[in-house]
Structures are given as C-alpha cells and as structure tokens.
Design a protein around this nucleic acid. Structure first.
Lengths: 340, 340
DNA sequence: CGGCTGATTGACAGCGTTGTCGCAAGCACG
DNA sequence: CGTGCTTGCGACAACGCTGTCAATCAGCCG
C-alpha cells in the first residue's frame, strides 16, 4: 500500500502557509519570499507532493497534455509509418523534458466531420498545445478548426514561413537542389523526378528544388522529367515502370520520398536493371528502412524527430516561435557514376 | 465565436430535473423513468451538451484516456516501428469506438526509475486503463508497477494465459509450428531457426513451435539448429552469415521476426545466394516492410492491430476478459521448394 | 512619525462534475 | 390498513486545485 496521496492542504499545513502560497511556489509564480519558498519546497519533497492534474485542469482550463495530430495512415494504407514514428519520437522527447504527456490523434480526412471531431478532442482533453503535422498543417479547414479552439498550435512544414504563427520548417527546396546537383555531378544527364501528393507542401518544395538545379545546370543536363506519384511505395513502382520503359530512360531517378524510392528500387530489380551501375536512385526522408534496403538508399535526412521536438518545445515555452531545421544529404549505395 | 459551452446545470434547468438526474442519464445509470430520461436526452441534444472531462476526472477519479505503454524503440535504435504503428492503429480504432483518447508512453528500460515514472504517468493522467505491450507485458517489475496503481490494464502477448488477469494472446507456438511444417513440406530437411530476445515471451513460444514441428517430423528432417538473434535487423545479418558459412548450410531459415528475416535476405544477397532458389527464408509478424522486400517475405501475419484493439475494448468494457487472436501463414516469394 | 507604495500572503469562491444520502411515492404482503 | 422494500429523484458535499481580491507588512519619503 502506498502512503495516502498528499494534497496541497497537507503541504500548506506542514509549511505553515496557505494553500495559495503552496500553489504559487509549485507554479513558480513571483512574489514569494525566498525563505517561504524554501519552507514550502521542503514540505513538498517531504510529503512527496505532486499536484493533481485533473484538479488543475478543472481550475485552470488547461491540461498537461500535448496533442500530436497527423493524417491517419490506416485510412489509405499509407506505408508512411517511418514518418509518424519519427515525429512521435521527437515529440515524446520534448514532452518528457517538459513533464508533459503525449496524446496522439490521427485524422481520417475522408470523414466529413474531421474538423468537428478535432475540435472536440482538443476541447475535451483541454490540450495545452497541438502539433499539426504535414500535410494537415497546410490544409485550410484543418488549420481553421484548430485555431478556433484557441489552443496554441505549431505547424510542421507548412510549406512557407508564416507570420505570427508558430511553425517549424526545413529547407526542402534547398536539399532537393543539392541532391539533384549531386546526381548531376556524378555525370548524370537524364535525371527524372517522381513527385508526390501535392497537398504536401514540403513535397512541392522538393519539386522546386529539383527544378532549380536542373535549370541552373542548363545545357549540361537534359530537360526535367517529372512523374506524378502519391507518396506511396506502389506509386513508386508505377512511376518507375513508366520512366524506365521510355525510349531514352533516365540514368538517375530522384523520388520525393523514400517510400517511392523503395518502389523504384524494387521495380529496377524486377526489370533486371542493376543499381547503381545502370541506374542511380535517390530518396528523401531517411526513414529507417532506407538503411535496410538493398542497395541502401542515398537520401536526404529530414530531421523529423528534431522538428517535432522543436514544435513541442515551442508549446511548452522552451523555444523560439520559429525554427528551421536543416536537412542533409546522406550518400549510400543506391547512387553512383552515370553509365557510359 | 462559438455559443457558450453549456453545463450540466443548463441541461437540468431545461429538462426540469436536478443535475444529478442529468448525470444519471448521461452516464446510463439505472433508476431513471423512461419519460424523464427522454426529456433529459432532448435537452442534451438541444443544448449540444458535452460533459466536461476535467470535471469528471476530478470527481470520479478516472479520465477518458487510455495509455499505451511499450518499450522505447529509440532507446536501442530498434527498427521495430512496424510493430508499434500496428499496435497504435488497433488501439486507436477501439478508442474511437469508445470515445476515448490514446496517450502513448514508451518506456526506456535502461532508466532506473522506469517504474516510478510509469506510476506517475498513470496516476497523474488518471488513465482509465493501460495496455501493456510485449515484452513489457512479461516483465515482473513493470507489471507490478502498473498493478500498484490499481488501474485496469491488459497485457499483450504475456507469454502464457493468465488467471484472473486481462490479456490478449496469439497462437505463436502453433503458428511457428505451421510455418516449420510448411517448409518441411517443401522438401527442406535442414531448416534453421533464428530466435530472438528471450525477454519476449512470444518469441520463445515461436522457438517452441519450431521445435515441436522438427520433433514431429522426426527422422525425415535434420536436427533443429537455432541461432540466437536479438530481434534486430543486424542480428539477422549476423546469424545468417554464421549459418550460411557452415559446412552444410541450411536450405531454409526461419527467423523469429521479420526484421531479422530481412537481415537474412540481405545477407543472402550479399553472399550471392539466390532466394528462394537456393535458400528459403521465412519471417514472423508481417510488418509492412514484408510486402516491400525483394523477394517479398513469406511470414506469419501476427494480428497486432486486432490484438491491441481487443485490449482497449476490454478496458472500455466492450469485450471479454480474455482473447486469443489467431495468427496465419502468409506465403509470398521468399520460400520455395528445397534445392535438389 | 504618518502616509504611501509595492511586495507578500491568505480567505474564499469558483471550476463542472460524481458520490452519498435522504426523502417520497409505489408496491407487495399479511 | 400498517410494514417494509424498491424505485425515482434531489440536495448537497466532495474532488483538489487556481483566480480574485483584500489584508498585512516592510520600506521609504517628507
């Protein structure tokens, strides 16, 4: 049996002060004499006092919960588990540091009442903050719903920097440009790109980065070729098939995310095309899988975990209101010199 | 602006009853006349009344939150994201059905204070129930910590059926036996097994299933060969290397989970051994990745999502106190007839 | 030394439910 | 027609905090 849980009254009595003073000390409010503060703190540790969250919630209209909201992958059989897990890990790290807990809430966009439901969750649980993952962070109605709850929220990769709104971004465009330049520097001239779901602003930025590089390379490389994927492994297969069956197939394929790149690798293997000897393949995200594929995937490490961590820190008041976390090139086995 | 939130008092006034009666109706308590119940229900819908969760928590000492507790994968760089995501999806499904929300809490077992911390989380958030995933569901100190909070909890794959305790299991042993028999039926005689982390009771059951089948097959197949992995992709690589370098290497390798099986496939490819022509490989779990590998992986579909869904349903009172969800064989490309 | 100011502290009323208990009405029974 | 039990309902006290506001105290000025 555990010793009966002590309340703010017990602490107050022991320290010889009022409950309000205990409250002040616990919440680090100003205007408490040092001596008093110390007496209270002593009592707190002696009694192992930990404030009751429910009571706090009720009285203060805020909980100690942070909500992580993202697109429900099961809704579409999206194999994007790496994306989600990474975000969760980052968010959890920051939660731990700030003594918060994490509530996860995937949204099924096909449902008509997503916004109503989202509002209910935020209000019912009195979340103290919400992290809105891409691509939701870029959808008008979703953002509006969250905003209407008056709960602080951070948008992850909202596509562009926003004034007066919390957000965390990464340099998708720049990173995509770097990757394309890297491929060009290996001697590739026909570099194709597989784009993804246009809802996902980060993904469109990657397209732009690819185009930037292709344009800058000018005559040295051939025209941009962009195939339309939807971020899924299967669309990677399909796009690869289409691209590789051209009369003059590309010698390098850069996919807007790793899942699609995995599809490309798979298709190349099916078609008997060796990677990277005959075809170089690059991805974007650096999901766990990227290191386990055969060949291992050259990709761009998107700091999803750090981004989510930053986001939560913003909500707990431990970070600036804006953060840009840089992505970086990870060169592995799936890319090599262009074939002669 | 939204219409001011209505409270139990508003409903009571409108229905011409006391707040207690409203409470009874909302909570489906007995001893309310039908006519009264209907009047209240009408008022509830008219005013769009939704009880305040924080107030409920405070008064009833229970929240509407379910906790999902699992081993922290980031602690060990475990690539088991598929496992976690699947569980989450199942748990979320049941939460949605029961109007609950899900709080996730990975445990870092290396920390000395895991149990203290776990208790705090459960108590602070006043979780109404906890789902304890394997292998935590099988660790004495963890289970004890959860039990000490007097919060209802369900153990996932605790290794054996437990009396008077909520748990959800699957037929690991039987499924492993089936897979082994299947391999034998393809003509394989030297079938090796890669076992995993012994903490994970489900995994030890798989070893037993393998042994069952090998024993039953008697003289027809060679003696069991078991290599010790630790559930990770890398250990799959290592064990495969060791097994395949034997004088008489196995013609089939059955790994206790898909991550290790992926490692085996990878090693075979490195060593120039063709799968399934020269070597058959089977896994266990059916993670998303299993369908994306090359060749696609023959494995056992472990119904993790359903298991977690069941678990949450138990906690919300919508299911029995015990469930066994069957696993099933998924034959794909990585297995084939034994080489001559 | 009186008055003024800002720092420090406490009393007390919420916050919106659920739990306990009491009371009245209805019903079976002798 | 009285007794005892069940059913249906309401009054009111928790639940354990935070917010508001008033009271007290110390320091400082003239």
């Amino acid at each position: 049996m555990q010793p009966a849980k002590s309340t703010i009254f017990d602490v107050a009595k022991r320290a010889g002060v009022s409950i309000k003073t205990v409250s002040r000390v616990v919440n680090r409010e100003p205007n408490v004499r040092d001596a008093t503060r110390q007496r209270v703190e002593l009592a707190v540790t002696e009694l192992d006092y930990r404030p009751d969250q429910s009571a706090r919630n009720l009285a203060s209209h805020r909980s100690h919960l942070i909500g992580l909201v993202y697109e429900d992958p099961s809704a579409y059989e999206l194999p994007s588990s790496g994306y989600i897990i990474n975000m969760q890990q980052g968010a959890l790290r920051a939660c731990r540091a700030a003594m918060r807990e994490l509530l996860i809430h995937p949204c099924d966009l096909r449902r008509k009442d997503v916004t109503t439901e989202l509002r209910s969750v935020i209000n019912d649980a009195r979340l103290s903050g919400v992290v809105l993952a891409a691509p939701l962070s870029n959808m008008e109605r979703i953002v509006r719903a969250v905003k209407s709850t008056n709960t602080p929220f951070v948008r992850l990769s909202p596509g562009r920097r926003l004034r007066n709104q919390l957000c965390v971004v990464t340099n998708d465009r720049d990173a995509a440009r770097q990757m394309t330049e890297y491929l060009a520097s290996l001697g590739h001239r026909r570099i194709a790109f597989i784009s993804g779901n246009a809802d996902h602003a980060a993904v469109s930025n990657r397209v732009l980065g690819y185009e930037d590089a292709m344009q800058a390379a000018g005559r040295r490389v051939a025209k941009p070729v962009i195939a339309a994927g939807d971020n899924s492994f299967d669309s990677g297969l399909a796009c690869a098939e289409q691209l590789l069956n051209r009369k003059r197939p590309p010698t390098a394929i850069f996919a807007a995310n790793d899942d699609m790149a995995a599809g490309v690798i798979r298709m190349a293997s099916r078609m008997g095309i060796s990677v990277p000897q005959e075809l170089s393949i690059a991805g974007f995200d650096d999901i766990t899988l990227a290191r386990q594929m055969d060949p291992t995937l050259t990709t761009i490490r998107q700091p999803l975990a750090s981004m989510a961590e930053h986001a939560v820190s913003m909500l707990t008041g431990n970070a600036d209101t804006y953060a840009s976390v840089p992505a970086s090139l990870k060169i592995r086995e799936s890319t090599g010199p262009a074939p002669k």
